[in-house]
Design a protein around this nucleic acid. Structure first.
Lengths: 234, 234, 234, 234
DNA sequence: TATGAATGAGTTTTCATTCAT
DNA sequence: AATGAATGAAAACTCATTCAT
């Protein structure tokens, strides 16, 4: 946790620090990110960091568990649910992409923190971040089942949740990068590049994702029974 | 690329090097992985690396783009296609999980390299690795469309491919970790832990993934039209 | 020297500062002792130190040359001399050990400052502290000679004083630690540990020290002459 | 322990390193001594130290437990015992002072390491160093008792050993500094200053120390009984 | 007078890479 | 071809001291 000092900081200074810290941690691995670099970029003395945060991990943890989620909540929060499960779902996905466009570094930060290739220091964080996301999504799917909007008896809810999470997480990120025809780092740096992913385009992609999640790619149950038969003698 | 010298190396020595390099790079970030550590563990002089590889990146690149894919091909290759698209698809997924059980470090290596949070050094690699996987999967889906096994006219094939890739990539990895109730690093280290993911269990998970990809979670097209209507006035 | 401001301080505040400063300097080397730590422990702003003392050294110097000796004088002072030189001597030693039991940190502070391994900063102090102790002891011994209680014509008074000082300084400290079977830091921290060195035990140890100082370990002059003879042809 | 690399080092380079390390550690506390300084003074890259020693403590430990004792043994070793306990004792003391004159930094190093004001890191070392010295001296005194050269039934051997250790350790060091009329650091630095403490002077001082240890300062047993009487009503 | 934020020099340690043997 | 010692840049972190409020 940051110290009082940090919160009492001159806003300009604090924002500069937060901005550059996010920049650093969103472009590099936790291990690679360097306080010295941030210090250089912020023109804030290295020693000063330690007035604000206990250590490198403390800063990172705060960014990932407090600052990024707060911004995301604020950003997403506006949209009220329509009551239509799938429409809400699509909206959620669209909002996620909008967040990615508006706050790409925060989005990246969270995504990276959720990657299991975590340094020993941050391994605990990864788990927490990851499971928080899963819990939220699971709850949402369960609501869908209750309301009858979603009904797939053969599917393990735990498995489904995690696969859907992969779709709307790494999956959509990849789709977005492909749409923009650029690498992550270019996208992080270029506002104009991101502006190309306007609402219409986002809506289209969200719709595609929902299409897949809702109805899949296949020809319906028929195929499934055939498969099971053939599967017997594999 | 490795030098001639590397390939002419005494196989025992070369294997030792490759094994330990994979161990190091699969447990740590590229930036964190240390040639010094590999040298210590292989008993191969640090200077010798530079007879085999141009530098750290060269070694990593070779592992990720050549060595890991080669092993994966060898491992997967055995299984001949049944002709049933969805059964083949399920088998592919099951084989992927089997690879993860048998060669967890290689699997991890590739997955990590495909993550977009890449250091400047490895940024180029990420794109290549990632697109190679996508290309392969896209081809497979296109074959499914041709044979009529797969038919979803509204779906953008590029988007679908990337979302499906996320399902069978990060998605299934997460599912597997959750099934084993362990963190990535424990799984990498414990043979016995991985053995718990036997064929039956893998089959069940693969089946779940196919269920989702093939038929989705929803109640069919009906819902979709409703959605479109309501969507109009959002 | 402390400033006026320091002496005009609210006694509670001043005592807290002095107490924690003593704690810090008695457990660490001068160089290791940290004003930041003291500030944290006293809840006194770091900047305030510089209203009371010129710098770190100034604080340390005052503790070592003024505060500690004052406490020691007050502590020892009570006991009036009996007139019997050796008995007074033994009493002095016993009082020294009692001070060590009651005010271990002050005792340690002085002892450490008297050690010649001093940092450049404190080099000057060492000499002063050390010689003050020596002067006092020399005077005492001289009084013994005058009164005839002490009579060893061959002995250089300067040498004797310094050797005796070593006995009752580092020597007895070592003996005490050995008696308590503990390390210095444990002794500093544990009241109960120190209580084990009650008056009887202290008396016994003081007696032992006096035995050695008064009569030595040997068999008397006889031996000495023999030695001199043999010594001639070494 | 130093690495093989260290021992295989070019002797000139190694000696330079050892010499400057001893210089640094003999003039400063362990905590204050700085590898950066040593590096600067030796013109050896900082990184190189870590090819020779695991860390700062490793270097210090080796100096204090191996290098210094080895030199001391070599230096002292020559003198064969005469068989006369007290003469041997005096010789030992004289040799100790000679070592102090010839290898003042090594002597200082060991003495400092034996001081109980030790940093947490080196606390273990202190104990070992200290007790090793005590054990040796105790054995010597016990031999004296066996041969009848030394006979003081009332004295606790453990206490006596530690007090005598203080005499010939810190005590004589202080005497020497006083004789030279200089501070420790001047003595460490000035060869000419130390040369003033020639054999004759050392002999005189050693003799004084033995006088005190052998026969004490007092007037014999008579006094002792009186003391006990008087002590009763204190 | 009291405060405590800011500072930057300093510390130990690691690492990829070079190069003489 | 193989070695492994040498290097120096870079990292995280601490601390006495200053100074504006």
């Amino acid at each position: 946790m940051p110290t009082r000092t940090f919160f009492d900081l001159d806003p300009a200074r604090r924002d500069r620090l937060v901005r550059e810290a996010i920049a650093e941690f969103s472009e590099r691995t936790y291990a690679e990110a360097s306080l010295s670099q941030i210090a250089k970029r912020t023109q804030i003395a290295k020693g000063s960091f330690y007035q604000y945060f206990a250590d490198k991990l403390d800063l990172y943890r705060w960014l990932v568990t407090e600052e990024a989620p707060r911004h995301k909540r604020e950003f997403i929060g506006a949209e009220p649910p329509t009551g239509d499960f799938w429409l809400d779902f699509e909206n959620m996905i669209e909002r996620g992409m909008a967040f990615l466009v508006e706050h790409p570094r925060l989005a990246r930060l969270t995504a990276a923190a959720a990657d299991p290739t975590a340094t020993a220091d941050v391994r605990g964080l990864h788990r927490a971040i990851c499971e928080a996301g899963i819990d939220e999504l699971r709850a949402q799917l369960e609501r869908g089942i209750e309301t009858g909007a979603l009904d797939k008896p053969g599917l393990d809810i735990e498995v489904a949740t995690r696969l859907v999470a992969a779709i709307i997480g790494p999956g959509l990120t990849d789709v977005v990068l492909h749409e923009l025809g650029a690498e992550l780092h270019e996208v992080l740096r270029s506002d104009s590049l991101r502006k190309k992913l306007g609402p219409a385009r986002r809506r289209r992609l969200a719709h595609q994702a929902v299409l897949l999640i809702q109805n899949g790619l296949g020809l319906g149950e028929r195929q499934s029974s055939t498969r099971k038969t053939r599967h017997a003698h594999v």
